[in-house]
Amino acid sequence: MKKIDCRGLACPKPVIMTKKELDNINSGEIEVLVDNEGARENLSKLAQNYGYEYRVLEDVEGIHVIIKKLEKCNTTDLKDNGNIVIVITSDTLGHGDDVLGRTLMKSYVYSLTEVEEKPKTIIFINAGVKLTTEGSDVLESLKVLEQHGVEILSCGTCLNFYNLSDKLKVGTVSNMYTIVEKMHRATNTIKI
């Protein structure tokens, strides 16, 4: 078992070092030695977030957090069967400041490319179609998603309304019937 001594290290160093070690192994245990409650708490959260088993022992040396990484296949395979549909109804994420909202939307779409569990379909409605058309800052990310088999649909009515019908750069045009069917067939519809 690999052991890491994180005593005396300031937050978030122990978490970063542990995460790195966990990324390096396929499965197995890693023992992290820390000297404070905060670090113990953060390491427990790290393990929980990734679904790894962990146990904590205390002795004169300090607090030992032992994290067990299991082989991946069992959990991700199950999740892959999900049919996630994301409906994006604006070119901003959340309500408040529009500049921040546009920035958050770029950040959000990029994150979709990085996570293992991809949605099956992303539907763009109303001002959301500004994201799939010329001048959008997320075209690259959307193209990456399309390459991963994610279906990208833009509402035709909306493209027409915003005079963007000939400016579509990624995915295909769709109508409300298809959009409704996609949402109803989804195991999880996420509206953004």
Binding site: P12, V15, I16, K19, K20, N42, V99, L100, T103, K106, S107, Y110, S111, D137, E140, S141
Partner: peptide, 30 residues
């Protein structure tokens, strides 16, 4: 800060530098 990031994105795009806004990876900050 978030504002510095937003300002930098705008300034870089004005200078024709191809950049992409991303969430800071967890390995850098939680």
């Amino acid at each position: 800060s978030t504002n510095f990031a937003i300002q930098a994105e705008a300034a870089l795009k004005n200078s024709d530098v191809n950049v992409q806004i991303i969430p800071t990876p967890r390995e850098i900050t939680l």
